[in-house]
């Protein structure tokens, strides 16, 4: 059914630089929620806080009512994370890597074997399952990254810039895979490809310089023309502010 996410006034500072400022939003169960914005908008920062990799300077994010600050490890059991530019162990074989990630997520025995088989089938990894990750194309690496995130069938999938560096065909395939995740999982998708957000997401939040500018539904985007029009309009309005 997916997980419910609630961000409450999340702020992250690095010295004097404010990477994220008082971000509050709610994401419903089974929703595919996009976070869009230019480089440096705070998208990855928010995802890293949500996944427990970074602590917020203030505020909190709750997943199904559990605070990521206070219950980091419990929250992490409920999520699968696909990092920006797939960060994988390139010296591992695909199968070995998936087995390791499954074990780290507490899977064992038959359940682990089944999860690996399902992931390999679901993401079309049959032909590369015995190969070393280091020799795979970017497209396959991204699939391996998605496969590891879904091994333990978590209610929440967090995906950061999934189509960077992929060719158009790979981008289309990956978007289809992401779309198929909605409903059963809550998907939080960070991207600066507006087309990607438009195609995949039920709602999108626009971030600019660490601030939430607007949250729009797919219908609202359609009414206003395209997400591109909305994005330009909102970011220009932000730039005009003192």
């Amino acid at each position: 059914m997916g997980a419910k996410i609630e961000a409450k006034e999340v702020t992250k500072r690095f010295g004097n630089h404010v990477a994220l400022s008082n971000l509050s939003l709610e994401i419903g169960e089974g929703e595919i929620f996009g976070i869009i914005g230019p480089n440096g908008a705070g998208k990855t920062t928010f995802l890293r806080i949500l996944t427990g990799y970074w602590l917020p300077s203030s505020g909190d994010v709750c997943v199904d009512g559990l605070s990521v600050v206070k219950n980091r490890f419990t929250v992490q059991k409920r999520l699968g994370y696909v990092c920006e530019q797939p960060k994988l162990y390139t010296d591992h074989g695909v199968r070995t890597f998936l087995r390791m990630m499954g074990e780290l997520r507490g899977l064992k025995g038959v359940a682990l074997d089944e999860a690996i088989e399902q992931a390999i089938e679901r993401f079309g990894l049959e032909e590369v399952q015995r190969r070393r990750i280091g020799v795979l194309s970017k497209g396959f690496r991204q699939r391996v990254s998605l496969a590891q995130a879904l091994l333990h069938d978590p209610p929440l999938i967090v995906i950061d810039e999934p189509t960077v560096g992929l060719d158009p065909r790979q981008q289309i395939e990956l978007r289809r895979m992401i779309q198929a995740l909605g409903g059963r999982h809550t998907v939080l998708l960070s991207t600066h490809h507006l087309r990607e957000a438009e195609v995949c997401c039920d709602r999108v939040a626009l971030l600019d310089r660490g601030r939430l500018v607007q949250i729009a539904t797919a219908e609202e985007v359609e009414m206003g023309g395209t997400l591109e029009t909305l994005f330009l309009e909102l970011t220009e309005r932000e730039e005009e502010k003192p």
């Binding site: 996944t51 990799y53 992490q76 994370y81 990092c83 530019q85 960060k87 162990y89 780290l104």
Partner: peptide, 14 residues
């Protein structure tokens, strides 16, 4: 440097 610590430390590993 490779960022794989991010992968590990978001899997509920201490």
């Amino acid at each position: 440097a490779h960022g794989t610590d991010e992968l590990l430390l978001t899997t509920s590993i201490r």
